[in-house]
Computed example of a mutant assay.
Amino acid sequence: MQSLPPDLWQAAWLTVRLATTATIFLLAFSLPLAYWLARGASLWKDAIFTAVSLPLVLPPSVLGYYLLLALGPSGPGGWLARISGAGQTLAFTFWGLVLGSVLYSLPFAVQPIHNAFEAIGPRPLEVAAMLRASPWRAFWTVAVPLAWPGILSGAILGFAHTVGEFGIVLMIGGDIPGRTRVLSVALYDYVENSQWREANIIAEGMVIFSFAIIFLMSLLRRRIGRYQS
Rank of each mutant, 00 (worst) to 15 (best):
G40L: 10
P6A: 14
V142G: 02
A81Y: 02
L8P: 04
S84R: 05
T162S: 14
V191S: 08
P107R: 02
T162L: 02
L80W: 12
T180D: 06
D7G: 02
E198L: 04
T50M: 11
A147E: 07
G173T: 00
P5G: 00
A19P: 02
V16G: 00
S194V: 13
L146S: 13
A129T: 14
M206W: 07
W136D: 03
T50F: 05
T180F: 08
P76K: 04
E165C: 07
L37C: 10
V98S: 02
G121L: 05
V185F: 05
P5L: 03
T15V: 01
G225S: 09
P32W: 11
T180Y: 03
R123D: 11
P5H: 09
W95A: 00
A109V: 09
T21L: 11
S3R: 07
A109C: 14
I201A: 14
S184Y: 05
A128L: 11
I120W: 06
F94T: 07
W36F: 13
L125M: 15
T50Q: 02
P76N: 01
I202S: 08
S153W: 00
A155E: 04
N193Y: 12
S194H: 12
Y66G: 00
A38P: 03
A19G: 04
G72I: 04
L69E: 13
L125F: 10
P177D: 07
A138N: 08
A34R: 08
N200I: 05
Y66L: 06
R123V: 10
P5Q: 12
G150L: 03
G205V: 08
I224D: 08
R221I: 03
A199N: 05
G164R: 04
L80K: 01
L216P: 01
H161I: 10
L220W: 10
S153R: 06
S229K: 11
D46N: 09
A128M: 13
F209R: 04
I156Y: 11
I83F: 11
A147C: 04
S74E: 05
N193F: 12
M171Q: 15
A129S: 15
I24P: 01
L54E: 09
